[in-house]
């Protein structure tokens, strides 16, 4: 039997083997094809093109030439690039913890069920996120005005002389304030939705065991939403490194304190659009992309390690 069956099955099997290799990949491709085409067009092509750009140098005199990794060497020794990177790193280490703590606090307050007008509170915290970033920056720019803006009005009404929020010392803080205002609602929503899926029975069990609210938060709620916190942190890290809208708009109000290399993105933008240095600009963009990826990855690894 065992000897006979292979010989019997052989013709059918060999026929199947002959037909299958031709058919199998193609059916698969029909399903994956549309995705692959779009993926290649909108994702791979721009990245490949940027990398291609970054190994050339185009001069007003001399035209375009292949320069290998020269642009990368230049970027890594460029003090303006490093100052931009330093600035967003400082921004990241101060603004992100402040923003996420406030968002977490608000989410916990909402989840506690002890607030009156909960949905009104939730909407009004979330509303700034619905305001386009450009409009928000313009609005805050007017409020920061020391002559006709809110700061100016306060100064007049109370006879104070508050310093201009757009002065060299305060401008980063003022931008942080705008970004925090914009994104608290968004992060609050991430935390809040993670909190709502925690089974209520856990809280009851904890209360029976005599745990207070603070204990419930530290022992149940926070560990349960750690994944959401990691996600929010990663989003915020990426957002900080990509800081562009706010400084770009405030620049017209305060051109001397917001330089053309205030953030890496602004630097890449100025290189490209005022200096026609597309190649170097692409290099800066690629380095920033890699750095952002590395740091986001580090945050994720760190966040997940705790979970184990």
């Amino acid at each position: 039997m065992t000897m006979a069956s292979p010989t019997l099955a052989a013709p059918a099997a060999s026929a199947a083997i002959q037909r299958r290799p031709r058919r199998r990949p193609w059916t698969g491709w029909w399903f994956i094809g549309p995705f692959m085409a779009v993926f290649a067009l909108v994702f791979l092509a721009p990245i490949t093109y940027s990398i291609y750009l970054s190994v050339f140098r185009n001069q007003l005199i001399g035209g375009s030439a292949f320069v290998g990794l020269d642009n990368y060497v230049r970027a890594l020794t460029d003090p303006q690039f490093w100052s931009a990177l330093g600035r967003v790193s400082l921004f990241l280490t101060v603004q992100v913890p402040v923003m996420l703590s406030i968002a977490l606090l608000v989410a916990l307050a909402l989840d506690s069920g002890r607030l009156y007008g909960k949905s009104f509170f939730r909407i009004s915290i979330f509303l700034p996120y619905a305001v386009p970033a450009v409009v928000a920056a313009l609005m805050w720019g007017f409020m920061y005005g020391t002559r006709f803006g809110l700061v100016g009005n306060i100064n007049q009404a109370f006879g104070l002389s508050l310093p201009s929020p757009l002065s060299a010392d305060l401008v980063l803080l003022s931008i942080g304030n705008i970004v925090t205002w914009e994104f608290i609602g968004y992060n609050m929503l991430i935390f809040f939705s993670a909190l709502t899926v925690i089974p209520k029975s856990l809280y009851e069990a904890a209360e029976i065991d005599g745990a207070g609210q603070l204990r419930i938060i530290t022992a149940i709620k926070l560990p349960a939403i750690r994944g959401a916190i990691v996600v929010a942190t990663i989003f915020s890290v990426i957002g900080s490194f990509q800081l562009f809208n706010e400084p770009s708009i405030l620049k017209s109000l305060s051109p001397n304190t917001i330089s053309t290399f205030f953030t890496p993105n602004l630097y890449a933008y100025s290189l490209s659009f005022s200096g026609q240095q597309y190649n170097y600009s692409a290099t800066v963009a690629i380095i920033m992309g890699l750095l952002t990826m590395a740091i986001a990855f580090a945050v994720q690894v760190r966040g997940m390690r705790k979970e184990r």
């Binding site: 002065s167 060299a168 051109p255 001397n256 304190t257 330089s259 053309t260 100025s270 005022s274 200096g275």
Partner: peptide, 21 residues
């Protein structure tokens, strides 16, 4: 300059500092 557009774009990074510092 034959590249005045760029030069003007970085004016406030450099000369502009005299107005605020």
């Amino acid at each position: 300059l034959p590249f005045q557009v760029y030069a003007n774009s970085i004016f406030n990074d450099t000369v502009g500092q005299a107005y605020v510092s």
